[in-house]
Design a protein around this nucleic acid. Sequence first.
DNA 1: TAGTGGTCTAGACCACAGC
DNA 2: CTGTGGTCTAGACCACTAT
Lengths: 262, 262
Amino acid sequence: MESPVAKSGAVERDSGVPVFRQIAEQFRAAIRSGELVSGDQLPSESQLMDEFGVARMTVRNALSELTAEGLVVPERGRGVFVRARPPVRRLASDRFARRHRERGLAAFSAETEHLGEASVDQFECAREHPTARTRDLLGLRPRMKVVARRRRYLLDGEPVELAESYVPLDLAAGTAIEQRDAGPGGIYARLEESGHILAEFVEEISARMPTPEERLRLELPSGTPVILLTRVAYDTAGRAVETTDTVKAAGRYVLEYRFPAE
Amino acid sequence: MESPVAKSGAVERDSGVPVFRQIAEQFRAAIRSGELVSGDQLPSESQLMDEFGVARMTVRNALSELTAEGLVVPERGRGVFVRARPPVRRLASDRFARRHRERGLAAFSAETEHLGEASVDQFECAREHPTARTRDLLGLRPRMKVVARRRRYLLDGEPVELAESYVPLDLAAGTAIEQRDAGPGGIYARLEESGHILAEFVEEISARMPTPEERLRLELPSGTPVILLTRVAYDTAGRAVETTDTVKAAGRYVLEYRFPAE
DNA sequence: TAGTGGTCTAGACCACAGC
DNA sequence: CTGTGGTCTAGACCACTAT
């Protein structure tokens, strides 16, 4: 394995800066400068031990720091590679416009129409008691139930998003909202058909590290955070008629919002 | 150190699940269930070695996994603690409303008016050539310069946000935009005074792990991502008159956007 | 001074990828 | 088969915190 870093492999033992951090910094610099690009292989651990004259743990410490930063991805039996940056997907805030529903597109389809081939490979639907948070978002009284729709979305066969939608039971009972396929235009279209014309969406965005379960289901490399997006839909009477929690792989998405300066 | 996990400290050596991961999972469960709460101290490394009958590296591996997930924070010479969750700050999308400027509040002040005492402790201002990305966002021709304002914002004395704003030089030259204190209402107020009435904002949001420099400047514990927010301000003529890149500690913020269902 | 986490060494055995 | 990263052991010295 030839690496620009390998040749200049030198660390100061008594500089006060830990050796493993010096090694990590050399690779950080190489990646920043473009010397190493997406998919490039780093020298193996044993090569790095030789080149820097350190123990294996020191090398692994350096590599795990880079892994935690999301810069490199180790592959068992193969090597450590500079992380490939999948193309970024842009979600514009008009993605729930009525014109999309009128063309028969559900929310996720409208979002991703130009981004790839969308599909759902995990789906659960149930009537249940909402969590306190969901109850607050929907403005429900205690003991009222909701219809919960949980699903995993794929784009071109790769998992990109986990979503959980909740609709108050009195609005969803017996409708296509309780079916796997909620019909053309999705659940928003069904809600409007039953007289709840949508007036406003409120979205909340935050980010954090994924839970182990989310890392598995979204097939995330370590060192990559998730974006949490919660949307609440209000009808023209000001009632919250639906809320969706989504977990997206950060770095695969950019969210865009436009708003007037008033 | 008494810990609920410590007493049930048991791992299966040949279950196929790595021992360090089993140890980590026990603490994850304890934190999830509320058995361990913010600020609680975990058993020390040597206690964990005894309780689980493993080597120190195995214990440290478990702890570093929890650290990378942002669940715990090690403190040198003191111990490992369940991470304190600072209060979440909500930023509503009306935070740039003209009414705030008319009250003399600059953007950050309007954002954070109810959240704490805002201040700036690092400031740089320079005329320079923009990066390709900034030039695109502002729709500038090559070789046009911008005024760059870089600063670090504090809330109640704690760093919460890094911001870099860019204004085309022809709009900023000689104005208060080049001063540290851009005056009442901030740079948006100055732009409107010079005839560029603001019409629309476009914000882009993404998230990633911080660079080492960002981690230092924002005093972030490891295992906590940052939210990147880029805003472009357009005037009534449709010209991009300003753009700001901000880096926020995720987990300290929730962003909120409201938009009509159209 | 005793206890904590931070760094580092020098080994070992394993599962997995690729030839 | 060889080389890779994944896991684990058993030590060592250090800087820092608290008492």
